[in-house]
Write a protein that binds this DNA or RNA. Structure first.
Lengths: 208, 208
DNA sequence: TGAGCCATGTAAATAGTTACATGATTAA
DNA sequence: TTAATCATGTAACTATTTACATGGCTCA
């Protein structure tokens, strides 16, 4: 259901085509919910059938066409209800931590590579999120500004605050993940050192 | 593929039944990878077909039976290869942050409820993870001790260190999530206060 | 004898991924 | 004219969830 509601969230601002929405899933909402086009197009048609959206075929150039989806009143109500509903907590799928728990089965150098790659990956995401924060603060976030135009001025403060709050949470989380990866890299070094010392100890015991 | 490898990880220690494994997915590995029984039983049969496991039907009581799965050499190799393979980063599905980004569409009190519930939820997970750490340190972790019996003494330090490292990462992450939820609760209060002040301001302007 | 646990599954639906497939438009 | 982007989809597969379904074992 989250995909559906992520789509509704975007469509509360303005009508969009499947392509527009797919692009947003590569940037704005994409930061908290990812979906490929192949999932978006069919879902839009289902939402249309369920009365949450209306569609209009718009000519595009000479022969092209595109389909603009507009959220209906029913769609707005459904989104509001979802926003007020309880979330179910089902988040326990974490490939990196699953791996880390069994690193003794990996080649030490590969474990190192993986932690380093993880750090880089999170670092990159962190950069994107921080940029969102910067834009929200500077007032240059296009998606936010477009949204603000559609809500009363009294709501601007809240709307802005929640975007910032969300991204700050993501950045903070990224920071601990990066620190964790770095701690892992240090740990791998320490374990190698300790093993080397043990070997030396064993050798000198042999000598004696 | 992670489910398969989580199962292999558990079976590197000792043969187990589907039920045993399902229980583990409610505790040990369950902390980093969740799976319901209905997914485990079919997957075990697929793994059997692929030669990663061997099975033995063991009588259980008078009429009962159970099926013990043992990892094969091929299974160990496959697990080692997976441990050395690159992970693909596909983690951008986060219902709580998706919601938080659009809290202006929720009733303020419901937003509060949700953040509070989230904090409690993470707090509970944090407790479980911290307990794992305590047990690893105290040497009273049954799953870890059973695993240590199957690996050479020279590997004990690494094996223990990686479990601890993993859970510490989870606890640290839980801590930022809790802090984030609390920041959100504070933010909701502040926004309400500011709105109230604005109203007062508007009223006194009217009076004058 | 009943409650709680041990044990194994099936069915149906939903969600998500990957690969394929096609064609139009726009701007350099 | 060609590359990048806009645009919409299908097919096949894999993963995951939820609900159902059955029955034996153990201990109080």
């Amino acid at each position: 259901m989250s995909l559906r509601n992520a789509l509704l969230a975007l469509l509360t601002v303005e009508p969009m085509t499947g392509y527009d929405l797919a692009k947003r899933f590569g940037s704005s909402v994409g930061n908290v919910w990812h979906a490929p086009d192949s999932q978006i197009y069919p879902e839009l048609r289902r939402m249309l059938q369920d009365g949450l959206l209306e569609s209009e075929e718009v000519p595009w150039g000479r022969k092209g066409r595109k389909i603009e989806y507009t959220i209906t009143e029913q769609g707005r109500v459904a989104f509001g209800e979802w926003m007020d509903s309880d979330l179910q907590w089902t988040r326990d799928r974490d490939p990196m931590h699953l791996r880390a728990a069994y690193f003794e089965y990996a080649t030490p150098d590969r474990a190192r590579d993986q932690l380093a790659a993880y750090r880089e990956h999170i670092l990159q995401l962190r950069g994107q999120w921080q940029q969102q924060i910067d834009e929200v603060i500077a007032g240059t976030s296009e998606t936010l500004n477009r949204r603000l135009e559609t809500v009363p001025a009294s709501q601007h403060r809240r709307t802005t605050a929640f975007k910032r709050f969300t991204y700050e949470g993501l950045v903070d989380r990224a920071d601990v993940e990066i620190a964790w990866a770095e701690r892992g890299l240090k740990l791998l070094d320490e374990l190698d050192d300790l093993d080397a010392q043990d070997e030396l100890g064993a050798l000198s015991a042999q000598d004696a």
